[in-house]
Design a protein around this nucleic acid. Structure first.
Lengths: 218, 218, 218, 218
DNA sequence: AATGAATGAGCCTTCATTCAT
DNA sequence: CATGAATGAAGGCTCATTCAT
């Protein structure tokens, strides 16, 4: 996909790309199954049964099982990284949409948490399968390093220059920020999804942690 | 397994449990294959070929494919958590083996990093498959919550009382500490294993980060 | 199966339950093979080849090899015992359809011989395998003891009261009658099927034998 | 085998042909297993386990699984038909060992019943497997038709000439006699072996039946 | 003589995919 | 479009048999 096409895809935030009822049922069933048993351990026949369609119908819409996987994962991941991708993203930051790094963090964290809440099964599939399918890695790798990553970098450098955050390599800052947020989100959904979580409070604590650590000294 | 049996297993730190040459080759081939393609997508015939044995030979040693998986993962995971499990672990901390929480962190991080360096393929299999196999979760779940987790908690509370670290719930402190360390280790091996890493320096930065965050204020 | 369902099955005397052409070929090939080599020694691949279908096709129609066995044996056995099962069976006897016990014997013998002639391969499978598969025994055991056996018993008692036959336990009378008939049918088909048999004459001799023995005295 | 060799085998009525302890255990385990699950469905590994020997040991004594089968069945069947085989058998009958056909029947029935009681598992294997293995049929076929059968025939003709029994073909008389006896023995051991049987009385009834039928008329 | 690890052919079954209807 | 019967390759696993020890 060219960048131009990506933008088209990414901006298209409505879920209702015209897909037939059967197609939707197939996707739902596939998400369910892949998420629960993993891609390789899921059979198309099981998915067909769960979707209430004939086995052949799946292959009418998706030439192969792998294409079905991509049809599930690709648009969701696209939407997941879309906000970091849009042209205005970095600009907003510099133009005082976010006065401080922690405002930025807070917003991103809330934002993405909301997204994960809505799309966890698909994201789980992505996380599980990315290690095994080049088709899942490649399209985002370039996208990520050339756009998302670069934008983050600029933002971090921006706040480093403002003296708000220390001058570790931006990659390191990014990694630590991301790890802290992901380190909440992942167990929250993967291990303790039925636990009651006060996300707002937790995010606040995470942001605090990222900024000031656990020593209590400022 | 009873706790007593666990201790026996965990303490048995020598890799040379008497296994035949063929058996070792099977395990190596299986680690290779599972790690690369995932458990479900790996075929026993492929493993056999890679190990240079007949397919039947695998099943002579491991009744089922899943048993082979467990034979690979179980002892490594056992050894991975063993240090946190031994009786003296918490005691050492209290008796000033570690004067400060960051000393403790540093040691654990170094320590486990070393382990991961040695056993990453197996750990990758574990991470990938734990979501799909109860047999992989169950044996460690109790062990973890009742021993490892409890010990960490005591340690954290110990340093909280000393006023070294803030009084967030110990679970939260733990999660943040762990996330920060894992957030380094995972990409280090999973995504950028061929990159040159100065682990010593990175660990230092992580510990700093955990203690004081990225704001630069103390 | 409930008794009601049994009746449905048993009465359904037409062989043309809608089965596809391939399905019929599979059944024929399976009967051939099971009958010739026994169930355990027959391979599904051989059956598939003989039937001219892919091996997978067998399993599309019959979930397991054992289900295939049952699909072959069950309906035939059902039809075999059906005549003794129908409501009117005993009644016909009492209402002078059969004036004497030997009339009754003659009819049953002729009747079942005809059936065996038509279905010997399947019956052979049944005889061979009944010892090893509960699924083959169970459905008929109750049916036999509660219906067939009871009806025979009544018939025998009927003729005992008429003074036509001696007052041994009906079970014994039954056993002797059955053994004499089976003792003809079994070798006739199992050992000397290519021999020319005058069934009508043989049956007459058997009935005579059952009634009067071999001493020649009346 | 030549007839001469047969005689040697048949006469050797002692079970203690010198076989090692292990060998005996193998035979016992094999009888158990074959009898319970059938030859084809029994695995040598299961037999080895049950016998408490290594798998290889079985094949040291019996080159193939089939040879093991024959080693079990052959001597028992030989012993089973031995009495009808010995030179004096027919002579005894003519020389008034048995004054009447029913004396003869009674003795044979008692005699063979006793044998079956002792060797039922092996006989069951024989019955089950004879249909599938030429090696089980061939050696006895000639033996049976040329010796046993002929002797029986003479005996029957002897009593026919004495006017004791009717002049049906001797084969028929034989078949009826045998069927009546087998028709008792088979269900007795195969279906109702735990039932309490008064064999003496039953045999008497069978002999009566064979001689005079069930009509009660003489 | 006895072992038991090793073999590789073959087993039953499942799977993704195709195609005539 | 949708179906579902059909495919045949591949899967995990078992088996009788061999052979070095």
């Amino acid at each position: 996909m060219s960048d131009q096409e990506w933008i088209t895809v990414l901006m298209n935030d409505n879920d209702d790309t015209v897909i037939s009822d059967k197609q939707r049922k197939i996707l739902e069933a596939a998400i369910d199954t892949f998420s629960e048993k993993g891609y390789a351990a899921s059979s198309t026949s099981e998915i067909a049964k769960k979707a209430g369609v004939a086995e052949g119908t799946i292959f009418r819409h998706y030439k192969t099982k792998k294409e079905l996987l991509l049809a599930i994962v690709t648009p969701t991941i696209a939407k997941f990284i879309a906000p970091f991708f849009i042209k205005t993203f970095a600009k907003e930051v510099f133009e005082n949409e976010y006065e401080h790094y922690d405002d930025f963090l807070r917003t991103v964290a809330r934002n993405r948490l909301e997204f994960v809440k809505k799309h966890f099964p698909v994201l789980k599939i992505f996380i599980q399968e990315i290690a095994f399918h080049d088709e899942l890695r490649e399209p985002y790798q370039k996208l990520f390093t050339e756009h998302v990553f670069l934008k983050f970098k600029k933002i971090i450098e921006h706040f480093q220059e403002k003296g708000e955050i220390i001058k570790l390599p931006p990659e390191t800052i990014m990694r630590m920020s991301a790890a802290s947020i992901i380190g909440y989100i992942l167990p929250r959904f993967l291990l303790f999804s039925n636990h009651e979580w006060d996300d707002e409070k937790e995010i606040e604590q995470i942001v605090e942690f990222i900024m000031y650590g656990i020593s209590g000294k400022r």
